[in-house]
Write a protein that binds this DNA or RNA. Sequence first.
DNA 1: TTGGAATGTCAACAAGGCTGACATAAAGTT
DNA 2: AACTTTATGTCAGCCTTGTTGACATTCCAA
Lengths: 167, 167
Amino acid sequence: MSDTGPRPSGENLLFLTDEQLSKGIEAMFFAYRGFTADPDRILAEKGYGRAHHRAIHFINRSPGTTVNNLLSILGVTKQSLNRVLRTLIEDGLVESHVGSRDRRERNLNLTDAGRHLEHELSTAQRERMRGAFRSAGPEAVSGFRMVLEAMMDGDMRRHYKRLKESG
Amino acid sequence: MSDTGPRPSGENLLFLTDEQLSKGIEAMFFAYRGFTADPDRILAEKGYGRAHHRAIHFINRSPGTTVNNLLSILGVTKQSLNRVLRTLIEDGLVESHVGSRDRRERNLNLTDAGRHLEHELSTAQRERMRGAFRSAGPEAVSGFRMVLEAMMDGDMRRHYKRLKESG
DNA sequence: TTGGAATGTCAACAAGGCTGACATAAAGTT
DNA sequence: AACTTTATGTCAGCCTTGTTGACATTCCAA
C-alpha cells in the first residue's frame, strides 16, 4: 500500500509512484494560491472576499441565472450565498428580478458596476493564466485541462461542461 | 482589452482568447473542489479542517521542520498556525521538540498516530490524482505540472521546487 | 549586556462556511 | 378549492480559519 518504488499502472503504461502523485498534490496547492492571489488583492481593497468573486463570476458567465442554479454550481448553502448576494445587490453590483416563466425564481444579472468589477477581477486572473499558458506551451495547456477535468467530481464536471459549451 | 476573437501571442504562436482563459479559470475552480473533497470528508469525521491537513502534510514532507518554515510555506499568520498546531499536539498527532542547534526553534514531527492520519488523507487524495493522471495520460500529466508551476508565485515556486528535489 | 529573532499566548474581530427554524409566494397536484 | 412542493429569503447561532495588536519568554549574537 505504501511501497516507494515505481510500478506499472497496467492500463496505459503510466508509472505513477506515490512520490510523483504527491508532487502533483503540492503543485495543485501552491498553484491555487497563485491562482487566487491577484483577485484577492483587488477584492480586499473593496471589502469583498472570494465568495463575492465566485458569485460575480458565475452570474457574469450565465446572465439571468437563478439562485438555485448558482447554489448548485457553488456548492454552498443558500444562507451563505444569500449573505453574499444581499451585499452585492445592496452595493448595486447585482440586480435581482422576479422570474418571467416562474415567478418564484429570481433572475440574477450584473449591473454596469458589477460588470466593471468582474472585468477587473477576471482580467487580473486571466493575465496570470495567460502567462502560465504561454510559458508552458500549447500542448501543456491541453494536458492541464485534461487532468483538471478528470479530477472533478461528477456534478462539477457537468457544470464545467455546460459552461464550456455555452461559452 | 476585451475583444473576443482569437489573436496571436506573438511569442510562441499560442492563440489565447479570453474565452479559453476563462475555461482554464473555471477548470481550476471546479478541479480544486474535487481535489479537496476526499480529504475534507475524512477530516470532518475527526473534527479537523483543511488547515490541519495542510500542517500535517508539510510536517510529514519535511520532518523536523520549524514553525517559521511552516509559516512561510503555508502563508498564514503564526497565530493561525499555532492554533492548529496546538490542537494537533494536544491530540497527540504532532510532536514539538526544542531545536538542537537553535533552542528557540521547535522541531515538528508526526507521531505514529499523526503518520496514520496523514497516510489516510494522502492515500485518498493520491487515489483521486492517480485516477485523473491515468485517464488523462502521461503527456497530459507533464503539461499539467508545467502549467501549474508557471502559475505559482515566486515564493511558492521556491518552496515547491525545494520539496520536489528533497522528495 | 543589550538588541533582535523565534516562538508562544491572550484577546478581539471578520469572513464565510454550517444547521435549524420559519415565512412567503408561486406553482403543481389531487 | 385544498393541499403539497418548490424557490427564495431571513433570523439566530455555531464553527473554522483567517486577521491585527499586544506582550512574555527564551536565547543567539554583536
